[in-house]
Write a protein that binds this DNA or RNA. Structure first.
Length: 585
DNA sequence: GCCGTTTTCGGCCCGACTGTTTTCAGTCG
């Protein structure tokens, strides 16, 4: 069964139902089902067999029946019914900005527009037909033209590192403005999601300064277009591709606005539900008492902590705000002490000039020392990666000797001679066991045949985990964000095997990889598997690739990882003991 | 369609901005 396809199916059903004007809460249910299926790390078929699907939040009787139907027949009758009522391409119109379900319905019924291509054709040749529809006009047509173009050229989500770079530029421009009291990054960037749809910046300032701050924001050099600009809110496009929003609120509302605009939406909806139970109302201006349906006294709002406290919750780190159990944990005082960047004691995945790295062995040791690390591992590529200059067994052993020789000059550092050894297609390793046995640290990693799905991909990793010389699996799925989906594996089996075998799973910190991803980390933590967070550095210097550690730490935090779960947050002695228990006796 | 320390029925988050309007509907986050 394909989870991604099932999730898309539920999403498309929601779109079609929305166009048909069906009950909006029912539509929300289908969107929830889509998200839960997409994010689930559980084996849905096993859950289905056990009659346990309804234990998933947001999955009830009706959705369970539809999942069962999908497993058995590969389709859902209700989906087919919807497709019979609405042209399937119509849902594609909803991807456009300024075009929602009502407009899509109107375009179809009045002008027989059935797809994005149809819409483009009419916009190009007969725009007056759209302009003359009730509720439409010249400006609306111009907006649609623009978003039809934008959707092909520059839509979608942007990598977190790219988003943070743009955010920093915007922040410094706004910060320089007089009258800015507080400034913070909000949205999914503050939550450190792996991709960001748009950048949200929040400022507190007096009313008199708001207009000037807006102006500073929209006149930033990199701003290529202003989408909207009101009294308190301004939306722009930066570098022709990334949307950024600025909101200005009063000081008394800054915490409420920060909470509100940080999201996620699901987290906020749950918080609002708690407020309602108390007879209060929560919005971006504060937490308010309500009297006879009217907004009463503000009881919190200046800072986030106050809002969570009033609602009976511990303050929730932004990385956890996805409504994946953090609210229950915050209510019970059981939020984990999340891993922090300062906990990291070393980096165990990096390359040198021996293969495709840019620094020498000593460059990398010096760089790690400058990072304040206590240990590192040099892990160059194996022979099946000829494009990287992968090492033959003989070259590998010579390289290991060179690493150990260099390490003698650094008695304060633990330097491990290692490898990033290919996991071949059948799950065997690129070096024989007797070669691997001579190393201090063996990272095994899949590099080729990365579009494998199902049991074969899972078995491949399980076989690598079973090798007694392997200490950790690097970038286990091989996905590249926005470029390659990677292997679809049964993550729960992988985590189980890793936990039992004492093999760590890497959270590759490169913002192109972030592999394991957040929900996989959460599955690993739950299974008791240990993690190792590494940068896969190919350049030396504390400002080079080694500095990417923060993305890995953030991803681990999003998966609820504590320092105890992460072997390179441990002291050197404990790490050594962990690695040595793998040695076959 | 889901869900339940007020509920198995009756709720389900809330406000800003825009365009086409003349008090509001649609879209967005």
């Amino acid at each position: 069964m394909n989870k991604t396809l099932l999730a898309e199916l539920f999403g498309q059903m929601a779109d079609l139902m929305e166009i048909l004007g069906e009950d909006r809460f029912r539509v929300i249910s289908y969107r929830t089902a889509s998200r839960v299926v997409a994010e689930s790390t559980a084996d849905l078929e096993a859950l289905a067999k056990a009659g346990q699907l309804q234990t998933l939040p947001g999955i009830g009787k009706s959705t369970e029946a539809k999942i069962l139907e999908y497993i058995q027949t590969g389709q859902i009758a209700r989906h087919q019914e919807l497709l019979a009522k609405v042209p399937p391409g119509l849902a594609g119109l909803l991807r456009l900005q300024h075009l929602g379900p009502k407009t899509a319905l109107k375009l179809w019924k009045e002008l027989d527009i059935r797809s994005l291509d149809d819409l483009r054709e009419v916009l190009a040749n007969h725009p007056e037909r759209i302009e003359d529809l009730p509720g439409m006009g010249a400006k609306k047509v111009a907006l649609l033209k623009e978003s039809a173009e934008f959707t092909t050229s520059a839509s979608g989500r942007h990598r977190i590192d790219e988003a943070l770079e743009i955010a920093a530029m915007l922040e410094s421009a706004v910060k320089a403005c007089k009258g800015v009291d507080e400034l913070a990054l909000a949205g999914s960037a503050r939550r450190w999601r792996e991709t960001v749809g748009d950048i949200d910046i929040l400022v507190s300032a007096g009313q008199k300064s708001a207009a000037r701050i807006m102006e500073a924001f929209r006149s930033c050099q990199a701003v290529t277009k202003v989408l909207a600009g009101g009294q308190t809110k301004c939306s722009v496009i930066v570098n022709g591709k990334v949307q950024a929003d600025l909101r200005v609120v009063g000081k008394e509302s800054f915490g409420a606005a920060l909470q509100y605009f940080t999201g996620s939406k699901d987290h906020n909806v749950a918080l609002r539900g708690i407020a309602i139970k108390h007879g209060w109302k929560l919005n971006e201006y504060g937490l308010f008492e309500e009297k006879e349906g009217k907004q009463g006294r503000r009881i919190a709002g200046a800072d986030e902590e106050g809002i969570y406290r009033k609602l009976g919750l511990a303050w929730v780190p932004p990385e956890l705000r996805e409504n994946r159990g953090e609210i229950e944990a915050a209510a019970a005082g059981k939020l984990p002490r999340l891993l922090e960047e300062a906990d990291i004691q070393g980096d165990l995945h990096m390359h040198t000039t021996a293969t495709d790295g840019a620094g020498s062995i000593t460059d990398m040791i010096e760089s790690c020392r400058a990072m304040g690390y206590k240990y590192l591992a040099i892990t160059d590529h194996s022979r099946s990666q000829p494009q990287t200059g992968g090492l033959s067994p003989k070259a590998l052993l010579e390289h290991a000797a060179a690493v150990r020789a260099a390490a003698k000059d650094y008695p304060d550092m633990l330097v491990l001679a290692g490898t990033e050894c290919d996991i071949l297609k059948d799950g065997t390793l690129d070096y024989p066991d007797d070669v691997l046995a001579k190393l201090d640290f063996v990272l095994a990693a899949p590099h080729a045949a990365l579009n494998a799905k199902g049991p074969a991909a899972t078995e491949r990793l399980l076989r690598a985990i079973a090798n007694p010389h392997v200490h950790a699996i690097a970038h286990p799925t091989g996905r590249l964000i926005n470029e390659r989906a990677g292997m679809e594996v049964d993550i729960q089996r992988i985590c189980q095997a890793a936990a039992e075998g004492g093999v760590a799973l890497e959270v590759n910190a490169h913002p192109l990889r972030l592999d394991l991803r957040d929900v996989h980390v959460q599955a690993a933590v739950k299974a008791g598997a240990k993690l190792v967070i590494c940068t896969d550095a190919h350049t030396p210097g504390p400002a080079g690739d080694l500095a990417l550690m923060r993305y890995g730490v953030a991803t681990a935090r999003r998966g609820w990882a504590t320092p105890d779960d992460v072997i390179n947050a441990w002291p050197a002695g404990k790490l050594r003991a962990f690695l040595q228990q793998r040695r076959p006796r």
